[in-house]
Amino acid sequence: MDFTQKHILGIDHLSVAEIDLILNTAANFKEINNRDIKKVPTLRGKTIINLFFEASTRTRTSFEIAGKRLSADTINISASASSVVKGETLEDTAMNLEAMHPDIIVMRHSASGAPHYLAKRLPRSSIINAGDGTHEHPSQALLDMMTIREHKGRLDGLKVAIVGDITHSRVVRSNLIGLTRMGADVRVAGPGTMIPPGIERLGATVCRSLNEALEGADVVMMLRIQLERQGKSLLPTLREYSRFFGLNPSNLALAKPDALVMHPGPMNRGVEISTSVADGPQSVILDQVENGVAVRMALLYLVGGANNDESTIQSSQSKGVTA
């Protein structure tokens, strides 16, 4: 199939076939990361701007490495260095970048919907959402799905428990949409202050306790917990959180013996996940990071390797270009 999406704004916009294609493409790119020469010329001459309005080490680095391994020129712009501090609007910042003819803008922003907003306004660039507010984080969900599929051979029919701050997690939304779309059965658990209304409508089963969520799970995904959100405390203490929602060897035993333990990072060891579990044999946390590069290569390739200009496509067809 042809991948026809110009932007990657969220998992919500991707069909099952498109998710499959991304995961398959990523699997093929993964091999490059193990070569001595970790670079292919695929996106030679393409310019990718990593526009990060929110601090991020992992995601930004992952996208940067992905772009560089595909021979694209990647430029990082972080919020502190950007014009935002000068009071420039998001649209102006983006239009100014667009004027320099990048091919892809990888964007992280604290406002939900910010990449959608730019996608409507930028005429040329493709936009890849690297996390918008508490909305979506599609590349994270894709790397999670890739990791699960690698270890389990499938997504369909798996029981996936996601535990933590469901309300404020963009990782949860993207995973929930993606995993249920791919046929997995997703349960969520967390303190009442962190379960948003209507999460069931996105396909989640809400569990009342961690143990209930872990029971028979094939995959356990723990989320980073933060005591303060928007200046308000949603938890009494991290100690209590850890006691009721922290993953440790004894409650992990409720899950299937070969259950995968995942975490999108960065981890609070000893809070949402004990060190012995994080570093234990069931942990695939570093696989997630490794697959992140491959998934991002796939996204950059599928979005950047395409030309969305109709006239070019037609003229190349009439010339009968083949491999």
Partner: peptide, 19 residues
């Protein structure tokens, strides 16, 4: 109201906007 920007419900949950 807090930092809410739209009605709290299914749609705010789906859009990731504070309700």
């Amino acid at each position: 109201v807090g930092n809410g920007v739209m009605n709290e419900g299914d749609v705010s949950t789906q859009l990731g906007l504070q309700g």
